[in-house]
C-alpha cells in the first residue's frame, strides 16, 4: 500500500461502513509493504468505524508492515490478531 494505491482500501470499505457494518476484519497476511499513506487510510477507516461504535481489526500483520504498525504504536489502537478466525472470535 503506497501513495499510488492506498486510497483503494478506503474506497473498498466505504460501502460497508455506509451500510452500517460495525466491524471490519482485514487480513494483511499478503501485504508486503505499507507507507505512511497506507497507514493514513487505516486510521481514517478505523475512525469512521469507531464513530459508529465499531472497530477495524487487523490480522496476519507481518514483516515491515508489522514493524511500521509497532513503531507508530498503531498496534495500541487497532485490535491485532494472528488469524481471521481469532479476529472473528473476538467480535
Amino acid at each position: 500500500m503506497d501513495a499510488t494505491n492506498s486510497q483503494e482500501f478506503e474506497v473498498a470499505c466505504t460501502p460497508w461502513i455506509d451500510q452500517g457494518v460495525k466491524h471490519i476484519i482485514v487480513d494483511l497476511t499478503a501485504l508486503e509493504y505499507v507507507s505512511s499513506m497506507g497507514l493514513r487510510y487505516f486510521v481514517n477507516v478505523g475512525k469512521r468505524l469507531n464513530d459508529g461504535g465499531g472497530t477495524l481489526r487487523l490480522c496476519g500483520v507481518n514483516g515491515i508492515v508489522k514493524q511500521l504498525f509497532q513503531i507508530t504504536r498503531l498496534t495500541n489502537v487497532f485490535p491485532m490478531h494472528d488469524t481471521v478466525e481469532a479476529a472473528l472470535a473476538s467480535v
Binding site: S35, N50, T72
Partner: peptide, 12 residues
C-alpha cells in the same frame, strides 16, 4: 484513535 490526526507519520 479518535484523537489521532489522519496523517503526519511520514517524516517520523
Amino acid at each position: 484513535l479518535d484523537d489521532r490526526p489522519v496523517g503526519g507519520l511520514g517524516i517520523f
